[in-house]
Simulated scan of single mutants.
Amino acid sequence: MKFPDERNYTDVNALLADLRRWLPIVVAGLVVLIVAAGTLTIVYTVQPEERAVVKRFGAVIKTTDPGLHFKLPFGIDHVQRVATERVLKEEFGFRTAAAGEPTRYAERSFPDESLMLSGDLNIIDVEWVVQYRIGDPIKFLYNMREPTRTLRDISESVMRRVVGNHLGSEILTTARVKIANLARDEIQSAMELYETGIHIITVELQNVVPPRAVQPAFNEVNESRQERERMINEATKQANEAIPRAEGEAKRIIAEAQGYAAERTNQALGEAARFRSILTEYEAAPEVTRRRMYLETLSDVLPQIGSVLVLQEGQSSPLPLLHLRDGQMPREVAP
Rank of each mutant, 00 (worst) to 15 (best):
K2E: 12
F3A: 15
R7S: 12
T10Q: 06
T10H: 03
D11R: 04
N13K: 13
A14F: 06
I25N: 09
L30R: 02
G38A: 07
T41R: 03
F57W: 13
G58K: 03
G75K: 06
D77T: 08
E85I: 00
K89V: 03
E90S: 05
T96N: 02
F110H: 04
S114N: 04
S118A: 13
G119S: 07
G119C: 08
D125E: 08
E127T: 04
W128C: 00
I134V: 07
F140K: 00
M144I: 06
T150Q: 11
I154S: 07
E156P: 01
R161C: 06
V163G: 01
V163H: 00
S169P: 03
A175V: 04
R176M: 10
R176D: 05
N181P: 00
L182D: 07
R184C: 00
M191R: 00
E192N: 15
I200Q: 00
T202N: 00
E204Y: 02
N207Y: 05
P211L: 07
V214G: 02
Q215G: 03
E220K: 15
V221T: 11
Q226S: 05
M231F: 11
I232V: 12
G248N: 15
A250F: 15
R252C: 06
I253G: 04
T265E: 14
A272T: 08
A272H: 05
A273Y: 04
L279E: 13
Y282F: 15
P286Y: 07
S299Q: 13
S299K: 13
D300K: 12
L302F: 09
L302W: 03
P303T: 01
V308K: 01
V308M: 06
S316K: 11
L319N: 10
L321F: 15
L324E: 04
R325I: 10
G327R: 11
Q328E: 14
Q328P: 05
V333A: 15
V333G: 12
P335T: 13
